[in-house]
Design a protein around this nucleic acid. Structure first.
Lengths: 142, 142
DNA sequence: GCGAAATGGTTGATAATGTCAACCATGTTT
DNA sequence: AAACATGGTTGACATTATCAACCATTTCGC
């Protein structure tokens, strides 16, 4: 199994999408990167949320997540408050300006999604999503 | 559209696979990275091949590809010879030790592929591949 | 209840990936 | 023949990513 292959296609698609997001962020004149946006989306979509939750979700080193969160907090896109259940931890939420950015990104994302999925049915997209999740789960179960 | 979403699943899958490859390379005690392997597979799978061909295929900056190739040549996994049709360019091929590595990676890849695709039919995998290519093409057409 | 072990998060260091700009030699176009 | 474009290289820098060590806190075992 080699390029061009299923994996090759997957990596090329992921790379294209990452560049798209990067260009969108540049056009918005934001001092963040695609991974920052990704983290905000995770936090925006679930409450309560801790750094460790993001670590688990992204399957990334906690050092990386800590740094991503730090930048977002510095730019007033995220905020943290003490976790009443664990003094070591803080609860993360999106600020008002962060929520505004999430809304702007949602509009852009919808456009990108429409472009990307042209000529593909809802069934095909569902299958793609399901198969991707199945594959990731298979790999995680090793 | 947000995490967890189709894109979220895609990025998580890509990340899992990259880590897999990284661990495999570490276990083989090789001084290269997943992108090096990816480049070798591209070159191994098509002849003749130039740096520019790899640039086009991967959709990456030529600076990055030049550096990846340099490392592989330094480690005698790839070799270059003058392109008879263009003095600016060189033709790239996999060396004997590079070919041996490609064979070892093929075995490992087959195992990973089997793990990853467990519970999925050939039709589903074909659909996944086709949809991924369609999406990448849609994005490239902007 | 106390000590050991584990956990949540931070920081330093380093690796991998990635792009931009400037440059040189060569090829193509006008 | 000059201008423009291209293939490849290098410097600089950005983004993504992990490992190790550390501190404060929580959990576990006795």
């Amino acid at each position: 199994m080699s390029d061009p292959s299923l994996l090759g296609s997957l990596f090329r698609l992921a790379h294209s999408l990452k560049r798209q997001t990067h260009q969108q962020i540049e056009q918005m004149d934001l001092a963040i990167a695609p991974m920052h946006v990704r983290v905000m989306k995770i936090i925006d979509g679930s409450a309560p949320c801790t750094a460790n939750d993001v670590v688990q979700f992204l399957n990334r080193d906690k050092a990386q997540v800590t740094r991503l969160l730090k930048t977002l907090i510095e730019q007033d896109l995220l905020q943290r408050e003490p976790n009443p259940n664990d003094k070591r931890s803080q609860l993360l939420t999106v600020t008002e300006s962060g929520a505004a950015l999430m809304q702007r990104m949602a509009v852009v994302d919808a456009t990108t999604y429409q472009t990307m999925t042209k000529g593909l049915s809802a069934d095909e997209l569902d299958a793609f999503h399901r198969i991707a999740d199945q594959m990731a789960q298979n790999l995680a179960e090793r």
